[in-house]
């Protein structure tokens, strides 16, 4: 039993398809348990049969009995079981991949995969557009439609606790629709090998109450007040040309070559799910992003002193 503990503990947690927090993942989990429930008796039956044949019943069956066993056990049973499983899986398919009509989904999130981070744009039906990165927030109980594409490699967008995965393919837009059913913080992960730091391309997925989500999104549609915070952080950000890749709402920096930093201070993680957010994490990432994430396109800033890094990190953390 002790040996099985790690196996069972993997069934729950922030990144488990067996601990569903969404309608689609609930169906995936049900399909999994159904397969187990269907497969285990068949496995036990086959093992019992081979034990019977090899240990207890050592003389051969009568020819007509053998023919009957082959016909029922080798033809009729597998065909029936496979037909039933195939029909169930096919019947499930449309609801595993529900495509929300434009009036059905209350929120549309556009996600672009980049080595090794996620560009995120929230779009409301009223035209409001909020740019973010490396974190996804969803209102509970509402259907959210994702439009997925990539700028470089094929990536794959997967929040196991909420639903199945869908590839992000350059030059193509794939759609995925999810309805979260439980408030909480989950973890998403790139599920298609995309380079050195593929395994480090993750993101927190936060399911919030509808009202809290509205408040959050409204706040994110305005520039952070931290932009004008006192200190030398902003000047250092400018002098080191961080703005040629990073966008910060309410400033002259509007490039989307790197992750949007408009409200980076309020995110749960830094480096697409790698470090728990905080000034220290920000400072270490700014100093050498490649040390946290091999192959990251952001250059190291080894010329900056510890004090300068702290200034920049403090200013970024203030972008709430």
């Amino acid at each position: 039993m002790a040996a099985l503990t790690p196996v069972f503990s993997a069934c729950s947690g922030v990144q488990s398809a067996l601990d569903p927090a969404g309608e689609e993942s609930g169906q995936v989990a049900r399909l999994f348990w159904l397969m187990i429930a269907g497969g285990l008796p068949i496995w036990a039956f086959v093992v019992a049969l081979s034990l019977y044949a090899s240990r207890w019943k050592l003389e051969p069956l009568r020819e007509d009995t053998a023919a009957r066993v082959i016909f029922w056990g080798g033809v009729v049973l597998p065909v029936t079981v496979l037909a039933a499983l195939l029909a169930y899986a096919l019947w499930l398919m449309p609801s595993l991949r529900p495509f929300a009509g434009s009036d059905d989904a209350t929120l549309r999130i556009e996600i672009t995969g980049r080595q090794f981070w996620w560009h995120v744009v929230y779009k409301r039906p009223n035209g409001v557009r909020v740019v973010s990165a490396n974190e996804i927030r969803l209102p509970v109980g509402e259907r959210v439609e994702f439009a997925l594409t990539s700028d470089d490699m094929i990536h794959s967008f997967w929040i196991p606790a909420l639903g199945g995965k869908m590839d992000l393919i350059p030059g193509r837009q794939n759609r995925l629709s999810l309805r979260a059913t439980k408030v909480g913080t989950y973890r998403g992960q790139c599920a298609e090998f995309c380079g050195t730091s593929h395994a480090l391309m993750a993101f927190p997925a936060i399911v919030m109450e509808g009202a809290a989500f509205e408040t959050w999104l409204n706040a994110r549609s305005r520039p952070s007040s931290g932009v004008h915070a006192p200190g030398t952080g902003r000047a250092l950000f400018e002098r080191n040309r961080c703005g040629s890749c990073h966008r910060i709402a309410g400033t002259q920096w509007q490039s989307t070559a790197g992750p949007d930093l408009s409200h980076v201070g309020s995110r749960l993680t830094i480096g697409a799910g790698q470090l728990a957010s905080g000034s220290e994490a920000l400072a270490s990432f700014v100093a050498d992003a490649g040390a946290v994430k091999a192959g990251a396109h952001m250059p190291a800033n080894s010329h900056l002193s510890a004090a300068e890094l702290t200034e920049i990190a403090t200013w970024l953390k203030g972008l709430q």
Binding site: A83, M93, P94
Partner: peptide
């Protein structure tokens, strides 16, 4: 089996 998807999709 090949035709079955057309029943459900």
């Amino acid at each position: 089996f090949t035709a079955l998807p057309a029943v459900f999709l």
